[in-house]
């Protein structure tokens, strides 16, 4: 199991703030693939991925128990 958090616009797309999903092993890229299948349009958005409060690249491994957040970059000012 891993815990997913959706921030800002992504939360509106998924219609939820967080969820827990089954996960045995895989990279961030594989999770993104899952997300895009589950929530069509997911990859049309721009976001960064944090695993356990560290931003990571798509090659990073995600392990059961990890907390993953999708965080859109913020440009306003």
């Amino acid at each position: 199991m891993i815990q997913l958090y959706y921030f800002a616009q992504i939360k509106e797309l998924t219609q939820k703030k967080e969820e827990t999903i089954l996960w045995s092993e895989g990279t961030v890229a594989e999770l993104i693939k899952w997300a895009d299948e589950t929530y069509p349009g997911f990859t049309d958005y721009s976001w960064q991925v944090a695993v356990n409060e560290e931003y990571v690249l798509e090659t990073e491994e995600i392990n059961p128990g990890d907390i993953v957040a999708f965080i859109p970059p913020v440009s306003g000012g």
Partner: peptide
């Protein structure tokens, strides 16, 4: 490094 590609769109004020 954080933003290697400019997002096509994003939330603005």
């Amino acid at each position: 490094c954080l933003l290697p590609a400019l997002p096509a769109t994003n939330d603005t004020c």
